[in-house]
Design a protein around this nucleic acid. Structure first.
Lengths: 194, 194
DNA sequence: CTGATTTGCATCAATGTTGTTGCGTGGGAA
DNA sequence: TTCCCACGCAACAACATTGATGCAAATCAG
């Protein structure tokens, strides 16, 4: 990257990325003009900062996945007790996902970089589930691949329902509540316990 | 509808609908030309049969949702024992969904008609889960709305993985196997039983 | 303050998609 | 067999989107 962006330029870039996320979340086929409008910026400015639509989406993916990885790392899944780690990572991921609905919802625009990040996250998840199984949190006969798919599906579903326009505080509380629900359902299902 | 279509015309319509389903499943923004090509038909023929892209998608939705409703009715969810009914409807729906990935995967193009069908299916599902809860299949404290969302998410997930280009026989077997997995996970989760 | 940078705006060409029309041909139906 | 319908093909206009350029005004940084 050449020299650092000027303050206003940096502001534009951030505004465009946020706008793109919001607009594309509602309509993945939205035009650059709609994104520019939402960002409060002329369409030419968008093209100045991002040559292609592709470039814009990749930048989006980069931002989102970096934040996602930080929030995953923050859960310390390799040291904390499995149940605690699972709850914590679920809440963290739900919080991030509520902000990046489009980028994290569509596995599109997987540049080699972001693809690598993804496979790293997936491998980490699988390793975590393996440990959880060894420590008795998952049934011994549970297929780990299927468990991971189920877990992802529940997280995705938990984020679909509520969660539009909330205070940052409410977002955190909601993420916690949904995390409890997700983990509980993931481990015990919906049938009678015991 | 005026007079019945001639044999070749009917064939074209079917070819176009199948092609649209396949092409749109891979790229929801695909052009009419791509659909026509996949159907082995000139683009003008597509426009002859379906005035708009919208009209085509609605026709798609009509076909798919009719088949879906038939497959649901076929499970006799109101009379059969809940566990049996749940397994049967799951297998049936998985079979239909594997064919109509695009149309049933995207709640787009909800004409008033198809929207009505949807809400009917959803209401039926909720009623079924209520009965299942009364008869002890679901825990008494399970939120039925959440249960329905979880069930839908699991069905959707089960259909994502395998299932591309299989014999009709293999499709049925696969649907059965996945239905068992889905129902089991739905009711008991992935944790240790018992 | 002053120079450099960014932006908005107007404009332009290129492109792809949509939807329509007319015509000749080939296959279905009575 | 004969008539008619549906098809493919070519061509067309309308439209939206993309991406680029030049320029004057606003704004940032040293």
């Amino acid at each position: 990257m050449g020299r650092p962006l000027r303050a206003d330029a940096a502001r534009s870039v951030r505004a465009i990325l946020e706008a793109a996320e919001q607009v594309l979340a509602e309509d993945p086929g939205a035009s650059m003009e709609q994104i520019a409008e939402q960002a409060g910026v002329a369409r030419t400015t968008v093209h100045r900062r991002f040559a292609n639509r592709q470039a814009l989406i990749e930048a989006l993916a980069a931002s989102a996945k970096q934040q996602l990885m930080e929030s995953v790392a923050d859960a310390h899944m390799d040291t904390a007790p499995p149940l605690v780690a699972l709850h914590r990572v679920t809440a963290n991921v739900l919080r991030i996902k509520s902000v990046w609905r489009f980028t994290l919802g569509h596995p599109l625009a997987d540049s080699p970089l972001t693809a690598a990040i993804w496979s790293e996250v997936n491998a980490g998840a699988l390793a975590f589930f393996a440990r959880a199984q060894r420590e008795g949190l998952l049934a011994p006969d549970t297929d780990l691949m299927w468990a991971r798919r189920v877990y992802y599906a529940l997280v995705e579903e938990a984020q679909h329902g509520g969660g539009a326009d909330l205070d940052p505080d409410q977002v955190r509380q909601n993420a916690d509540a949904m995390a409890t629900l997700v983990v509980d359902t993931f481990l015990r299902g919906t049938g009678p316990h015991g």
